[in-house]
Amino acid sequence: MSDPSGERLAVRKTYKLFIGGAFPRSESGRSYVVTDTHGNFLANAALASRKDARDAVVAARAAVKPWSKAPAYNRGQILYRVAEMLEGRRAQFVTEVLDAEGVSSSEAARLVDAAIDRWVWYAGWADKYAQALGSSNPVAGPYFDFSTPEPTGVVAVLAPQSSSLLGLVSVVAPVIVSGNAAVVVASEQQPLPAITLSEVLATSDLPAGVVNLLTGLTAEIAPWLASHLDVNAIDLTGAPLELWPELERAASDNVKRVLRPTETEAEWSADPGLRRISTFVETKTVWHPIGV
């Protein structure tokens, strides 16, 4: 309680990871200090180790089946529910984006609105992307031939380093909308909006393990995810440029899908198109005999 002079005991925050719907400490017991753009202390964040990444992959793998089997319409509803909760925490996100990115408060508000809109936009794609990316194919024979996109499985997402919320939402939502489970490595210097997003996801109806969030050094964790044989795809967006060749080489070992970010994508406000959904789906083509 506040004393008569109005001074309160400071509540110093030490955040944890988000793995399998729970908030465990890093297995390594490490943490690091998160500051705002002026160097003022904001909070402590967990410094994830390779074993945390391994645990996150196990959690994500377990979530792939229930999440990808959920009806597309249901996935859309759940994602929309997440957007509702994002809206409810709007003020907190604005403060965190302001601290993290050092932008003006009106710009921070614009970024948060854009992020929520982006999430809603992707939620809408849940029961529509298959129509856009699938096809029925004319073939020379008595077959009804059609192709449908299916989720690839576990996707490692290296979230963008500078766009702490809009960029994050823009890389996470398209991965999970099709039924994939994601292991996300948050922005190294600006992880707080991501941590708050994980709190939103934990209390929405999203099944445990669909999104797992690691905070820490991207360069430390990324190689383990890139070489992990139970990861099906990796998004390199937040990886340091000099690490790309190594990560792509490691990813080739089990023929992972790799998403290389484009130059123009650095402007996260632009219309993202379907590229980020289509990269993380596999096309299944069915040849169905028809009566002659």
Partner: peptide
């Protein structure tokens, strides 16, 4: 091998 394995293997 030095990298994590999966249940597929």
């Amino acid at each position: 091998t030095g990298h994590y394995d999966g249940p597929d293997y």
